[in-house]
Amino acid sequence: MSSSLNQTKPADPIFFPQLGVLVFFGLIVVLIIMAVYPLPDWQVISPDRFAGISQEHPLGTNALGQDIAARAAQASWHSLRIGFIVTICAGFLGMLLGLVSGWYAGRWPDATILWLTGVMEAIPFYLFVAAVAYAFRQLSWSMELAMVVTFWTTMTRLVRAEVIRLKQRDFILAARAIGLSPAKTLTSHILPNALPVILVQFSMIFIAAIKAEVILSFLGLGNSSTISWGLMISESTQEVIAGHYLNFFSASILLFMLIYSVSLITDSLQTRTDPRQGVA
């Protein structure tokens, strides 16, 4: 049947794929405004408790009279920083191990890496973070360390599978036939072809890191020397009972904007590079 060959590509299932980029830029704009607006220091305690929205406190104040906008801005940078650090470290670690594992599939480096992956995946994440946080309590970045050490595994599995799939393609044999070394074959042929999968996984790690940071700080396992969305939400659980919502909404809306926009962008990235959609 020729009609099935000329099937039109199904519409993108997401209503507004551009929305992700839009929300992301919205978030950045909000953060920039917060950065340039003359806000009080986020730590300063004032007698002006639970103040409403005003010129001085654009998002009001919390139970200690601290400026919520300033705290939200500080928390956003904190979350973004953790997100990026964890994403880059865990992403690259996972990618590297996946490349090695896939290239040596079936041999000892592969077996070792797979075993390590299996071990890391069997440890319950939050308890692991708690234990790392305790074992390395002198370090201010023990939470990041714990996330990096656990978040690489999915990347490794995906990259490994991708390398194994690509290795059987003729163009890899062709690369060998012109005398390309394994290292160069990996960097100039396998890596570029595995890039869509890798990029998607990078943003997955980012989302996971942001979410985990929020929950960990909410539970009190985070870095207590700074403010974060999780801490704000944790503070606000008492406030919402008393009917003060500004703290809660500021933190949760920013958190939602970030995760939603990155998810949307990831999703359209995934749809566009999905082999079943016939592209790439």
Binding site: I14, K211, V214, I215, F218, G230, I233, S252, L255, F256, I259, Y260, S263, L264, D267
Partner: peptide
Amino acid sequence: SLLGVSISFLI
């Protein structure tokens, strides 16, 4: 569902 997974469990 994309919207749903973007909302934190805490919230």
